[in-house]
């Protein structure tokens, strides 16, 4: 059987899956909107935790966060399930598909056959939607792919039970109830408020704009601390988190700017429009940072330009601080 599910490509898998699922139930929201309502913009630098032989850099909150916040804010009810027994996980999916419910799943990408080989690392928080089964193959809508794909029973089982960090354990989810009326204004403002909290209000040196500044200063010492090769690899890791699959460019900054622009129109707040322009400008600076980092990675320049690269980040941190503080004021005024 095949559910009449419209696949639409997105920059990021999590936003894309939510937007696609919501559209199936008649809620038309863009990817950027989902991202903003789910407070997807984030930054953290955790030098003391090493993952895959590099410190942790993240431009997004933990996987599943955007999903939870977005659906909760919109008042959509989601049923989530994990299974100890793989066979039961697949049976449950089959039953869902028979009932005509498009079902989201968390999978690992390493064994995902249609995924391009250059992106296949052991990453276990990818989201896909199954929307049918034909000739024993599951029809899959993966938001980062241009069109729908198919997976065999064994292939799907293997990726649903990927091992390693953050195992999906056959996790699947589907929408059970959609409210008649959505308070989009409230959802947007709450999403913004949470983002302001994470970007500028939280204390401590590792989260939000302070994290960027911290990374900027820390990064200048990398060559002497870790040696050129390791420093270049760490720098490369930041750029990978920033630009690799699913950020829409510049570590979600453009996606967030798109959200601000849409919100400006929906809420009739002009100040948001100018914030969007500013956000785009910092996004462009993140791209400059990536260019500089790419050059250092290639080993084209001497170590002293780590100084300059770090300075770009410190500059961005100052600009984003201003943006999110202004955003905080706008939200406060709008909520009155």
């Amino acid at each position: 059987m095949k559910i009449d599910f419209k696949h639409q490509m997105a920059a990021h898998c999590e936003n894309g899956v939510i937007a696609n699922l919501l559209r199936f139930y008649g809620i038309e929201l863009s990817e950027a909107m989902v991202f903003g309502i789910g407070s997807g913009i984030f930054f953290t630098y955790l030098p003391f935790i090493k993952m895959g032989d590099a410190p942790v850099f993240a431009f997004r909150p933990l996987p599943g966060y955007i999903f939870n916040k977005a659906t909760k804010s919109l008042g959509v009810t989601i049923h989530t399930e994990k299974f100890r027994n793989p066979a039961r996980a697949m049976e449950s999916l089959d039953r869902n598909l028979e009932k005509g419910i498009p079902t989201g799943m968390v999978v690992g990408v390493f064994f995902l056959p249609y995924f391009p080989p250059q992106y296949r690392f052991h990453f276990n928080a990818h989201n896909i939607v199954a929307f049918g089964k034909e000739d024993g193959r599951y029809l899959i809508s993966d938001p980062v792919m241009e069109g729908p794909e198919t997976l065999g029973y064994d292939e799907l089982l293997k990726v649903r039970y990927a091992k390693g960090i953050a195992q999906p354990k056959g996790k699947m989810y589907y929408i059970t109830n959609v409210p008649d009326k959505i308070d989009i204004r409230e959802a947007i403002l709450n999403g913004m408020k949470r983002s302001v909290l994470y970007m500028v209000r939280l204390p401590g040196p590792v989260i939000g704009v302070t994290g960027m500044k911290y990374l900027g200063t820390h990064l200048k010492r990398w060559p002497e601390k870790y040696g050129d090769k390791k420093a270049a690899r760490y720098l490369g890791q930041i750029v990978r988190m920033q630009e690799e699959i699913g950020t829409g460019g510049a570590g979600f900054r453009f996606l967030y700017a798109a959200f601000l622009q849409e919100a400006a129109q929906l809420l009739q707040i002009e100040a948001l429009d100018s914030l969007s322009v500013k956000m785009t400008a910092t996004g462009d600076k993140w791209r400059d940072f990536a260019v500089a980092a790419g050059r250092l990675c290639k080993g084209r320049e001497q170590t002293e330009s780590y100084e300059k690269t770090g300075d770009i980040l410190i500059e961005i941190a100052a600009e984003e601080k201003e943006i999110f503080q202004t955003l905080g004021e706008i939200v406060r005024k709008a909520k009155k």
Binding site: L235, V239, A290, G294, R295, C297
Partner: peptide, 11 residues
């Protein structure tokens, strides 16, 4: 994008 290719190749 070239910088992206460089860092991915590096990884």
């Amino acid at each position: 994008w070239n910088p992206k290719t460089v860092v991915m190749q590096n990884a």
